[in-house]
Design a protein around this nucleic acid. Structure first.
Length: 746
DNA sequence: AGCACGCCGACT
DNA sequence: GTCGGCGTGCTC
């Protein structure tokens, strides 16, 4: 007997702490040698106890370690992770600086993290071991005397690979007859684990192109070109609301399935309504698996398994569905790609768009990432302009419905002319009209500012930080301004520095206040309110929308949660009470968010037969984001905004990473922040920049002080700088977290 | 994360 | 004398 070398496994243990976030080597016992595979979950001895772990490497080379231990057991014979999953997870670790286990666990079935899994059920299979000719001959002899055994032979002859589930055949011909076949040694019974079920042929009608717009046809043909090529490419589908993007998605999925490729559709959680899902289910039936947080744990698990074993080939879900276990993944569609919800705000802090791309890159034969939006993120638009992704515009609504007409109302003028109400005269007139005609209206309040800013009601002036360009937040007692990016302070003004007026006022009104005002002007009108307070109960969100849809109310007052994912054919008027709240949010993307919001809001008006009307109230009527939104002019907005970002060095021209430091003692937190900033400084290239440390906009939360550092750097290199921070040691009482590609600064 | 080892205060 | 505090160090 040859002296066969031992086999060693590199294992990642399921302990989420940076000190054990590396491979540990184990000996594979001879008894498991033929069972062991990369991607399996295992139990290994670790220190004085047993822990779960995942095999990420197998090698025959002796790692030459003293006191190496052996793998204790393998959880499932079929690996939980593919090699590609592991490669994507490793990429996530590099990019987002998270422990490898947490990245890997994204690929696990929902609800199973930190558990020892046993997904496989053992199944007995029957295999015909005669050759077919012989089987037919012997079967004929049995026909008269043992018809059931004859039937069994025939079943096996018809089965793919001459093998069948034992349980199935027992049902057909009875246990006795099966046993007889086994005893004659004609049929072999084996214990196996359930395998991936072969893909069923897709029954799709030939695509009827005649009903598509020319833009839709163009999008489809570009997508097919990518799927037929050997490259991985992205398409940015820029289509105004109502231009028929969903129809394109459906056709592209069909095209992918036909080529043997599986698909993932990502949709923001808030748009994942029964209507949306229903449209996909109607087209693809049981081949769709829905991964929805509203499903029970068990239901989500079942949907995941249907994907893993090949029963379903299309996954639809929110952010985390990007990890859906599809064997031949060739298409990922990300709808409303500009939405912030594609960034996870807990570890691992991944951006689903990036993970999607990375998953597709792992395989190299005709793979497509399709990003869709009515208001693409500047990042995507910029990439399109540079030719890094294919840009397809769908500028027209189906059936050539016009975009709703709108008016931008200057609230400074209203004040000047003595109107101190929250409603402009125009909005009031339009509201009256709607009420009289028994139509419906939506009033938007934008998101409520968590931080106060100051607004000059005479001229619309907003104090801004001269070095970061974002609005100062206003602090009372004592009164001063603070930049939450760089910690710059500015003492309070007595008069507006622009127009010298005394109407500098902290800004913000609640939905409740709006409700009162509406009641004052329209005492007999039924009003629904939708905000944080009214939607905490489960499903209340859907209930309110449903009630409004059923015309149980005439006016709906809400924050931006109303703007998404619901059509109200009866709505003919949309009023944006104050566009400035979004515009002066202390965030470098405030203009972009405002443009997106106004565009989206306008899409809510006039989807039925009556043309809609939009009133936008603002103290900054000439701001380019508001002007461009009023004209539905994305490209001129994007051009201006890109110029601004380039000048001020914000994304997409740099990458922003954020380090958040929290702790109970403010002094320690600030010291640590300074220390980290100094460490990172060492890795900084000349045109890069460290901003801060500064207190977070939420500077104290749950009794912990919060400071952050922002780093502007290069996409491919910024984690190197952060690693310098990770290496420095600091007081144990603070916690430090790293967020690459940070958007939320709370 | 766990679970050791390790070196100083008040208890049967 | 010893029971036990949690500081720091390691886990293939």
């Amino acid at each position: 007997v040859l002296n066969q070398p031992h086999l060693y496994a590199g294992v990642i243990v399921d302990i989420r702490i940076s000190q054990v976030d590396r491979m540990f080597f184990y000996l594979v016992p001879e008894s498991l040698r033929h069972e062991v595979k990369i991607g399996q979950q295992v139990v290994v001895p670790f220190g004085k106890r047993n822990v779960n772990g995942y095999i990420v490497e197998l090698q025959e080379e002796d790692p030459d370690l003293e006191g190496i231990k052996s793998i204790h057991k393998i959880c499932d014979t079929n690996p939980l992770f593919t090699l590609q999953d592991i490669l994507v997870a490793k990429w996530m670790k590099e990019r987002y600086l998270c422990p490898l286990v947490t990245a890997m666990q994204c690929f696990q079935p929902p609800g199973t993290v930190r558990k020892s899994l046993h997904l496989e059920k053992k199944v007995k299979m029957l295999q015909l071991i005669l050759d077919p000719q012989q089987a037919i001959a012997l079967g004929e002899q049995l026909k008269a005397r043992a018809p059931r055994q004859y039937e069994g032979i025939n079943r096996l002859l018809d089965a793919p690979g001459y093998s069948l589930l034992m349980s199935g055949l027992v049902k057909e011909i009875g246990y006795g007859s099966v046993k007889a076949l086994i005893e004659k040694n004609w049929v072999l019974a084996t214990q196996t684990t359930q395998r991936r079920i072969p893909q069923e042929g897709l029954k799709t009608s030939e695509a009827d192109i005649s009903s598509l717009t020319s833009a839709q046809i163009e999008a489809l043909s570009q997508a097919e070109k990518v799927l037929d090529s050997s490259e991985v490419k992205s398409i940015l589908l820029h289509g105004v609301t109502g231009s028929g993007k969903t129809e394109v998605y459906l056709r592209v999925i069909e095209a992918a399935l036909k080529r043997g490729l599986d698909a993932i559709v990502l949709v923001p959680e808030i748009s994942l309504t029964p209507q949306t899902v229903g449209r996909f289910q109607k087209r693809f039936g049981p081949q769709i698996a829905v991964l929805h947080s509203r499903l029970s744990q068990g239901e989500r698990f079942d949907e995941w398994m249907r994907l893993k074993n090949g029963q379903a080939r299309i996954a639809i879900g929110a952010r985390s569905a990007v990890f859906a276990p599809l064997a031949d993944l060739g298409l990922i569609i990300i709808d409303e790609e500009h939405e912030d919800s594609y960034k996870q705000d807990e570890t691992p802090r991944y951006q689903a768009k990036e993970v999607a791309w990375q998953r597709l890159v792992q395989n190299n034969k005709g793979r497509l990432l399709m990003l869709g939006s009515a208001t693409p993120s500047l990042e995507s638009y910029y990439q399109a302009r540079r030719g890094n992704l294919i840009y397809i515009s769908m500028p027209e609504r189906v059936e050539k419905r016009p975009m709703p007409a709108n008016v931008i109302v200057d609230m400074r003028q209203e004040l000047l002319e003595g109107n101190r109400s929250i409603f402009s005269r125009q909005l009031l007139a339009k509201l009256t009209e709607v009420v009289n005609n028994q139509e419906q209206a939506i009033l938007f309040l934008n998101r409520r500012g968590f931080a106060q800013f100051l607004l000059c009601r005479s001229c619309g002036y907003i104090p801004r930080c001269p070095s970061c360009g974002v609005s100062y937040t206003y602090h009372q007692r004592p009164e001063y301004f603070l930049c939450h990016y760089c910690d710059r302070h500015q003492s309070m003004y007595a008069h507006c520095p622009e127009c010298n007026s005394r109407f500098l006022r902290p800004f913000g009104m609640g939905t409740q206040k709006v409700e009162e005002e509406v009641a004052r002007y329209f005492p007999n009108v039924k009003v629904l309110r939708m905000d944080k307070d009214t939607t905490t109960a489960k499903n209340s969100h859907q209930k309110i929308l449903q009630a409004f849809s059923n015309k149980e109310a005439d006016i709906l007052i809400g924050t931006q949660m109303v703007a998404k994912g619901h059509d109200f054919p009866g709505v003919t008027l949309v009023g944006v009470l104050c566009a400035d709240t979004a515009l002066h949010f202390p965030d470098y993307r405030a203009s972009e968010k405002t443009f997106q919001l106004l565009t989206q809001v306008s899409g809510r008006a006039g989807r039925g037969n009556i043309p809609g009307f939009v009133v936008i109230q603002t103290y900054s009527p000439s701001h380019y984001a508001i002007q461009a939104a009023g004209r539905y002019d994305y490209s001129s907005f994007a051009q201006r905004e890109l110029n601004y970002r380039q000048r001020t060095k914000y994304p997409p021209f740099v990458e922003i990473a954020r380090i958040l430091i929290t702790g109970e003692e403010e002094k320690v937190v600030i010291n640590t922040a300074n220390q980290l900033a100094i460490s990172c400084q060492k890795g900084l290239k000349s045109d890069w920049q460290i901003i801060g440390p500064a207190p977070c906009p939420l500077s104290k939360l749950k009794n912990r002080f919060r400071w952050h550092i922002l780093i502007k750097g290069d996409k491919h290199d910024i984690n190197r700088v952060l690693s310098l921070g990770m290496e420095t040691d600091f007081d144990m009482s603070v916690s430090v977290l790293y967020d690459v590609g940070a958007t939320s600064l709370l």
